[in-house]
């Protein structure tokens, strides 16, 4: 079981990182979107390894099946070929990349220093059958107010999106 889990982790992790790299480097946005979808699905697999199967479903239904469909939809509505033949990276890409790497180095240092300090509790042999219930419980009791705020945020976003995307007269 352990080796299987490890193999799965490595598989998902490599897939996620590789497609993430491809995502930010592709010229063609549709290909980029497909690679992002792959990353998201691999992440969903990692959620499953972490026994968060409800989040796995949320990730697949909402992220991949909802948000990314929206992305692909919009990508098809905007002109691809013009942007494909233009320069893909900013002029300051070198500085930006270096800064990002410095940031990553800091995080890396922090994790490296604290390595081994954090450990997961022993894996239960069975996937806990109550994950969905537990999440729902927390969401509707302890996190009720944030939940409502999130719904209002969604409502606002919906109205905002409709207003933004609506074609103006004339």
């Amino acid at each position: 079981m352990q080796t299987l889990n490890q193999a799965l982790f490595i598989f998902f992790a490599v897939l996620a990182v590789a497609s993430a790299i491809l995502m930010v480097t592709r010229r063609n946005i549709v290909h980029g979107a497909v690679f992002l979808i792959t990353t998201l699905l691999s992440t969903a697999g990692i959620f499953l390894l972490l026994q968060a199967e409800f989040l796995f479903i949320v990730q697949v239904i909402l992220y991949v099946g909802g948000i990314m469909v929206l992305f692909v939809f919009v990508i098809m509505l905007v002109n691809l070929d013009v942007s494909m033949r233009q320069v893909q990276f900013n002029r300051q890409w070198f500085v930006a990349g270096a800064l990002a790497l410095v940031l990553a180095g800091q995080f890396l240092f922090a994790i490296w220093v604290g390595r081994g300090a954090l450990r997961l509790p022993a894996m239960a042999s069975e996937i806990s059958p109550k994950n969905t219930e537990a999440v729902a419980d927390a969401l509707f009791s302890h996190y009720m107010l944030p939940f409502e705020i999130a719904s209002i945020l969604l409502l606002v976003a919906m109205i905002g999106a409709v207003v933004m995307a609506k074609r103006r007269a004339g």
């Binding site: 497909v34 979808i37 697949v60 991949v64 099946g65 098809m76």
Partner: peptide, 12 residues
Amino acid sequence: AISSLGIYGIVL
């Protein structure tokens, strides 16, 4: 969840 992914086949 899985059947909602089938849409990509159509769209792509």
